[in-house]
Design a protein around this nucleic acid. Structure first.
Lengths: 150, 150
DNA sequence: CTAATATCAGGACAACTGATATAT
DNA sequence: CATATATCAGTTTTCCTGATATTA
């Protein structure tokens, strides 16, 4: 086979990957630099969102789903617990596990989008992108999620 | 005005922002976890790309363009210098400044996409997205860049 | 005994802030 | 003197690895 010779698709994917890497880095810095939504980190927001979609999970389960070590997830979870957004209850059938779930505070926060107007990223998406472009971006986020799986 | 009442667009932008935050965090961890392209960090790749597009720049100029402190950019620049991808020459007209530019090695690296086939992100984009989806993603990256400016 | 979960301890990295020296 | 650049030093944040206890 000539798998080692140049393929146009290869270079295209490389260009997309390179641009993506550079842009993700910059956005992440921007977001971290601003106060951001209710002062949650990217990982913390990911956990809240995950619990909303999938229901109660253990720390290890969350770690697997978010491509993170259980020890790292533990600190994210404890930060959210201190913020009153999640609470853990021991699993009655398995003494090792602690099931983590959203508090009513967290659900209300999500439902009302309370932090939306103070959130730099939300404001920027609102002001710099047309509604059509916002939908385009949401579709692309679906593609990014696919890349992040496995 | 009723700017404080609920606007459907607000919640939509907030949803996009929340999904984007969560997904960016996960992708960044994935990319950092794998070896990645020639073992450059996201910031380092952003700098190489920036120099390719805009030509030689000072450390402070790069910091401004990438939304980073000059001190932080300095360490990125020195890492790239050690890797032989950029070189700095003192500005003859302004003794304070050092102009940073790409080496031939870096240009060749970009031109050939040499690291493409060992690069996790490139491989994943190739295998998990159709060519049409890759173009869709590239378009969305343009939108993300717009968000990251200013 | 093996596997999975949680947790404690220490470390690496990339960004930050503050302070200082130098050149314009 | 005011401004801009570069750099030194210390800190924070987020994630990592390694080791240990506990439960299934």
């Amino acid at each position: 086979m000539d798998k080692l010779s140049k393929h146009p698709e290869d270079t295209r994917a490389f260009a997309v990957a390179t641009e993506l890497r550079a842009t993700i880095g910059k956005i992440k810095r921007k977001v971290a630099g601003q106060g951001s939504a209710a002062d949650l980190t990217l990982s913390q927001i990911a956990v809240v969102l995950r619990l909303e979609q999938d229901g109660p999970l253990t720390t290890s389960g969350l770690a697997r789903l978010e491509s993170m070590r259980p020890q790292s997830m533990a600190s994210v979870v404890s930060a959210l617990e201190n913020a009153g957004l999640i609470s853990g209850t021991p699993d009655p059938t398995d003494g090792r596990q602690t099931l983590v779930s959203l508090t009513d505070t967290a659900r209300q926060w999500l439902r009302e989008g309370r932090a939306a107007r103070q959130d730099w990223l939300t404001r920027t998406i609102e002001t710099r992108l047309t509604p059509a472009e916002q939908e385009q971006l949401m579709t692309a986020i679906g593609l990014l999620k696919r890349l992040a799986e496995d």
